[in-house]
Structure formats: structure tokens, C-alpha cells
Write a protein that binds this DNA or RNA. Structure first.
Lengths: 193, 193
DNA sequence: AACCGTTGCCAACATCTGTTGGCAAACATG
DNA sequence: CATGTTTGCCAACAGATGTTGGCAACGGTT
């Protein structure tokens, strides 16, 4: 993300690189992995398709770069325990509406094994880590995180991908009110026998 | 589905048609719409690619035929009201494990507009109809159905598509125990202000 | 000014895609 | 048997796709 992590001096082509990445995210989000063609991405970025190859190696490499994503989950230990669910849904909704990277990842994960692997990594690592902050049983923690992921990804899938009318039309606040108790129970509820 | 609805006599090519449809469902489920090529489907069915075109017109036509699906939702009015959630999750899980058509539809819906439209139709029509059986407020009914869809599709997405380990490893009965209360509340819970 | 790495474009490649038309064999019908 | 229809395969087309190599222009360094 930050342009000069290992390469000390910024290159002259950083603008081009960024334009490609932005166009790639848009196309991947709108069309999915296979329908988003390098030519179309290059056209959006107003450069030649061969530049995409030079800077990102391959289509897979481009996607890997475009799908870099940090959920930026808050520290759940500093959240009032009773409001965990609400904070989480609200955070996810905001994160989703503000950055199309997640939609790109979601669309691509359905058909591209690499994208699915990336998605697994994000939710297994970041979400599980956040949930683990207030639980000791590792298997139970993983299960709680998985359940939260199932509801949150289902929300995203129905709202941004399939676009089910009731899920698209409902205001974020009302969605939060409905879904928060679900996450709350997945996070803190007593596990079934 | 039934081979002789309008055409009185069964054709000699019915076996071929069925083989194509079966192979198509498998490929669409495994690879998604764009990666499932007509050539691969034809190879699986052990016939020539051109036969697919003759019998189903186009790739879209083939998908439309392969993605025909009935949720076979039970009549919710004859279910004990307190067990609505449990019955629903269990039904969906069984339906999903037993028929790969839904997985095909789910994968394809991410990238193919026609598949998304089909998915919208299935959940808007069949699920909303089932939910409408015990509610009068139409907007609220649609919202309840949408919420149920979000959790059920999220379950399917994480378990069958992304294959999040905790969602794959957890036994169906335990998933039911966790998720049933969620659907129960979406179906019968008091709506937020 | 001479030099060299960078940036960019053009043209082309090999391959794969959905799709089409024609032709031979199998079958059914008179 | 003769006729028409159905089933199947082969070969091919037109277009799109990821990817590559070469070549000109630019920019900084010595």
C-alpha cells in the first residue's frame, strides 16, 4: 500500500501503478475475476495492457495486489461487551460501503481459488484474532468467528452481489438493529451442548 | 424437469439431454459460469460440443435449464411456531448437501447477471411466499425473507464456496443449533423501531 | 554530450471461447 | 423400399484473452 516501503525513492511510474490498481479494483468488483479483462482494466487506466504485465507480472499478480485488504477491526476488548454485535455490524457495513476492494474479493472468491484462499486468510486471521481477544477455547473461538463471517458475508452477498431488493432497500441502521443481536449471540452466546 | 410436459412422446435423445444437464450442473457448480466451458461440459457428457448448442441454444440457455430449482420449502403454517428457525435451517442444509444445483447457482450468481436474477427470483418468490403465509405487512415480510436469505446464503457461501474451515468442519446439527435462533428471530421477532 | 535505466506503445503470438454449417449414419414413416 | 427426420460428429470461423518482444521517447547521471 505505502508506496515506498522497500524502495527508498519513489518511481516516476507510481501514478500509473496506482491508476492500474484503482481500475483493477473497480473492474474486479464489477465483473469478477474472469470477466475483468486486462485490456479493459488498462483502458480504464488509460495505458497499454502490456504495462499491467510489466508492473504486476500476470493477471493473478495484479489481483493479488488489488485484493490486499485490512478489515481494520477495532480492538474488541475495549468495546462494552453488550454492544459487541452492534459495533461489528456497523463496522463491517461502513468498511464495505467505503471500499470496493471487499466487493471485488467477494465476487472473485466465488470462482477463483486464489481469491477464495485470500478471503479465507482474511477472515481466519483477522477476524479470528479479534474474537480470540476474549476467549480461551481455540476451537470455540474459530467457530464463533466462522459464524460471524457467515452472517456478515451473507449480508454482503445479498446486498452487494445478488442485490436482493429488501436487503438493498433497507437502511443501514435498520440492518444493524436486526443483525447486531445475531453477531452478539455468535460472539458471546452459550454454545449448544 | 419432467421430460414429457408438452412433447407427448419421449425423444430418443432424452438420455443425451440429461447427460448434458448433469455435466453442466457439475461444471457450473465446480467452476462457476465463465470457467465452465461448453467443451468441458460436452466432454464430461461424452458428446460433441455442438450437441449442447442444438439442444439448449446457447450457453445461457444451458445454464437457464441447469439452474432450474425448487427450494421445496415446507408449508410454514403447519410448523410449530417456536421451531420455525430450526426447521428452516435443517431444510436448507439438507437441500444444499443433496443437490449441487444450488451451489452452481450460488457460484454463478456472483459474476453472471442472469444467474443473479434467477437467484433473486427464487428467494424473492419462493422464500417470500413461504414467509408471507403468516404475516400481513408486505414490506415487513419481504424484509424478514431477505434477512433469512442473508444468513442462509452466508452459511452456504462460507461452507461450500469459500470453504472457511470452521464452517466446513462443524457438524450440521451444531450449525443448526447455532443458526436456528437467528432465523427464528428474523421470522418472528419484533421489528426494531 | 554520451550513457543507461525507465516508461510507454505497437504489433503479434498462441490459445481458448461460443457458435455455425455441412455431412454421414440411424431411425421412423409412407 | 423410398423418404424424411433425428442424432451425432467433424471442421472451421470469428472474436477475445493472457502474454511477449521489440522499439522509440524520456529522464537522470557522469
Amino acid at each position: 500500500m505505502t508506496p515506498s516501503a522497500q524502495s527508498a525513492q519513489p518511481r516516476r511510474s507510481d501514478a500509473t501503478r496506482a491508476a492500474i490498481l484503482r481500475a483493477a479494483r473497480e473492474r474486479f468488483a464489477a465483473d469478477g475475476y474472469e470477466r475483468a479483462t486486462i485490456r479493459a482494466i488498462a483502458a480504464d487506466a488509460q495505458i497499454d495492457p502490456s504495462m499491467v504485465m510489466r508492473y504486476y507480472g500476470s493477471k493473478e499478480g495484479l489481483f493479488a495486489a488489488a485484493a490486499e485488504f485490512d478489515l481494520r477491526l477495532p480492538d474488541l476488548t475495549s468495546v462494552p461487551p453488550a454492544r459487541l454485535g452492534e459495533v461489528l455490524v456497523r463496522h463491517f457495513l461502513a468498511r464495505w460501503e467505503g471500499d470496493e476492494t471487499l466487493v471485488a474479493l467477494l465476487r472473485a472468491a466465488s470462482t477463483n481459488p486464489g481469491a477464495a484462499e485470500r478471503m479465507r486468510g482474511i477472515f481466519a486471521d483477522q477476524l479470528t484474532a479479534a474474537v480470540a481477544a476474549f476467549g480461551t477455547d481455540r476451537a470455540l473461538t474459530a467457530r464463533r468467528a466462522g459464524l460471524v463471517a457467515s452472517q456478515v458475508l451473507g449480508l454482503a452477498f445479498t446486498r452487494y452481489i445478488v442485490r436482493l431488493p429488501p436487503m438493498v432497500d433497507t437502511a443501514p441502521d435498520e440492518l444493524v438493529a436486526w443483525i447486531a443481536p445475531t453477531l452478539q449471540r455468535y460472539l458471546t452466546g452459550t454454545p449448544p451442548s
